[in-house]
Structures are given as structure tokens and as C-alpha cells.
Design a protein around this nucleic acid. Sequence first.
RNA 1: GGCGCCGUACCCAAGCGGUAAGGGAGAGGUCUGCAAAACCUUUAUGCAUCGGUUCGAAUCCGAUCGGCGCCUCCA
Length: 465
Amino acid sequence: MLKLTNTLTGTQEAFTPSDGEHVRMYTCGPTVYDYAHIGNFRTYVFEDVLRRHLLSKGWKLTHVMNITDIDDKIIRRSVELGVDIHTYTAPFTKAFFEDSTTLKIQRPDIITPATDYIPEMVELVEKLLAAGYAYREGDSIYFRISRFPNYGRLSRLDKRELKIGARIDADEYEKEEPRDFVLWKAPKDDQEPRWDAPFGTGRPGWHLECSAMAMKNLGATLDIHCGAVDNIFPHHDNEIAQSEAVTGKPFVRFWVHGEFLLVEGEKMSKSKGNFYTLRDLIERGHDPLAIRLELMRVPYRKQLNFTMEGLRGSQSSLDRVKDFLFRLKSATLEAGSDPGIASGTASARNQFEAALDDDLNTAQGLGAMFELIREANIALSENRLREDNRREIFDFFQTIEQRLAIVPPLESVVQGDQEIDALVARRNEARRNRDFAMSDQIRKELVDRGILIEDTKEGTRWRRK
RNA sequence: GGCGCCGUACCCAAGCGGUAAGGGAGAGGUCUGCAAAACCUUUAUGCAUCGGUUCGAAUCCGAUCGGCGCCUCCA
């Protein structure tokens, strides 16, 4: 049974889709004004693991993710460059999906760019105006928080006191109350993009898009809505207010928020010089799979301190998995099954499932995998492992791959290559003649070509790095 | 100041009342012509500190110290 921590209640709750079979999930996507950074991807990787786990339960899943392709930053930069916003955002949207693919993040079922949903947003604002939840001030439209008594439930706003001297009002528009938030912004100048609406020309405020696009595609009540913790307030509280004011129904059953990624113990920021995009890391030669593993090593509810040392550690862990799978694949085994290994494999599988069910405890799931690797390695050295055991272990790793997508591919590693085979044969010839100088020289040649050699009792095997 | 998360070995980390998973790094060893890989041993009578509850606590309660985040666009 899957348990998830629900921000709404602050506790772990058993999750099932409201109708028992179809999960309706919305995840906050990127604002495409620049390349996404690894902090962003920590969240997307967690959501990907959730997505994969939900699918494994046999539920039907409709997963919607937005692309915020209109906001202040986008407008400012596109104006600076003298291009329209779509011309500006298109390459970053494309880059985002390329990066996601690099990290083996599955594509959501429905992608909703904000600018494709203007009519839905306009409709929402009209309803809010009609019901008295929204008002016009100047040429902009605001949400009237005083009309929505439950406001701030998600962030437990009622328990908070405002910091003395804290800036309450983030923008310069007039409002009835400082805490009211903007639904529809009147253009400030000629350059700003705008859309016509019955209540005036303008553009949508940020919070509006998620409500409109989520409800349009998933209905009034979502099963799951994800994002990172920084979205809890005000973004998600505002979404709740807008949506529930219109529908009168609970907007979301499970709010699931990913904690922040820190870099070297501090929040990532460009000024601190600890800011990495995925592309930065790839350029430095890091393996995307190691990055993915590093991003899920710590369960989503806990802050993850990203360090280069940690990333190297993940790479080493990954190499261990790769070495093991390679060893298992190339071993010569007898038919049959060793009962000890069989039960070890079954128990690793159970532990893995239980770990993911337990609020996506990836650290524990990974632990179960490594325990099995050690057990199987010992069995391999003691010649106890049998053909059926191997099949079951490979089956398990297939499951791990479906769920976590961190299993290194073997195909590219062990594929036949006549030229390499010939070099290996020549080296073994030299070894037989005890011409170790020659043997080592050939090995060096192979290493230079990215080939690792392992001499075992069953002969020499090689693989690509 | 308020709200929230957290403090487990050199580093990362699981642990959810029954006696400290796992990964990385280091050291020593087995195997090997040498490597590589693998395996073995080794690194927490102790889980920030101090009290309390309990037959029993890293796990529950209280206090203290420390770190991080949010309260403002932000994954």
C-alpha cells in the first residue's frame, strides 16, 4: 500500500485514486526563461519516480505538467532581445525536454503551455468576478482573500505571524488588501504581450494558469498535485483559493512537495557561484545516470546536499552495479536454482517494493538492491549461483529499471567487436608466453580505447568503460 | 519574530519502541605475472546535548545547542 506525505495534513496517508483506478496528477513544470538547473531536476526526478511507481500499481494515470511560458522575466528578456515571447521561450522549452530525456524522466501525458490556455483562464476569472471572489482595481483583476475564509490552509498561515518589517506587497498595483493576489494584469507598457478579455486587455497572473489547466484536463478535484516546497506558499495556497472558490469542491486530495536541493550546504544561487544546470554537469563529463542516482539518493522529503564528492560517490555506486551485472551476465552457470539465493532475491524484491510504498523511500530501496548484489557476488565466487537465480536477478533489475531508471545498460558495454577480441587474444597469447611487457602494452592500448580487461578463471573478459 | 524540515561512523544515508541496513572514501588481507573486479577484515556499547516516560529509546515527551528552508519571483 502506497503511503505519501500530504502537506495538507502534514502526515503520511495511504494513497488510492478517488475512483479506485484512475490517478489524476498535476505537477508544476518549468518557467522556460532559461535552462533548468539541477535543483529543478531534483523535483522532476522525484515526480518521475512517483509517476513510475503509480503506474506499477496498475492504475491508469493522467499526468499533466504545465510550461510557464509567460511571466515577468520572460517578458523582460524577450523585450530586451526584441523578439516575441514564443520565439524567446521555444528553445528553452525544447532544451527542457532534452534534459529530461537525458535524465530518463518520462514525459507527462499532457503538457500545457500557459499561453495555450488563455480562454480557460479568462473563463475562470469571469466566474470569480461574478461570484464576488475577484474585483477590479485600476485595469487589473485581483482575488479577494477576505471572501475565502480557509485561505492559507496549506501553509498553515493562521499559525504564522508576519516578520516585522517584512515586505508584504510584491508589486506596485493597487489592491483592497495587500495580501490579495493578481489574477489578471493590465499591461504596463506597449511592449507587453496581451490578450483581450471581457474584463479588459491584459495577461494572466502566474497562479491562475495551474488552476485553469489542471481543472480543464483533470476535473475539479485532482488526486495528486506536486511541486517543490517553495511553491507551498503562496503559489499553491492561491491555487486552492481560486479553484475552490469557483467549484466549491476540494481542489486536491494529496499535495506532495519535494524538499530543496542545496549545493555545498547552501541554497543554489548564481551570485554564490554554486549554480549548476544539467548541461554544466554533462559538459564536465559527468554521467547522466550518476546524476539521476545522486538526485534520488536522498528521499524526496529531505533536503539533499549536492556535492561533487557525492556525485563521484554515486558514479562509483553505479559502477558497482554495472560490474555486477556484467559479471552475472558473463558467468558460466549450471542449470537449476539455489534456494538461498532464490529467497534472497525474493526478499530484496519485497524490501524494494515496501521501501517505495513507504513514501518513496528511494534510499532504502537502493539499499535492498545493493544487499542483493553482495549476496549474489558471494554466491558467484562460491559457484553456488544457478541459471534460474540469474534469471530471477535479471528480472528484479528490470523492475528496478522500470521504477528508478538507474540501471546501466549492458548492451553497449559487452557487444562483440572483432578488433577488440583480436587484441585480447593477442594479449593472452603474450601472457601464455609470459611476455608480460607485451601483454601490458596491449592492455594499455585497450585502456586508451576505453576498454577494461578482467582476467578470470573462466578466461579474459572485456567491457567498455 | 512566526511556520516547517533536520542533526546517526571520515562523507552520504536507512532506521517510525526491542537492541545500529546500504553506498562512497581510507587501511590491511585473499585471488592475480601485474592489474581490474570480487570477497573478507577494519571505522558508532553508540545515534547533537541534558533531563523524563518505559522492562527496554536513535526511535516517544520536554528543554537546550546547531544547520537549512519558507514567510518576497523561485523546483
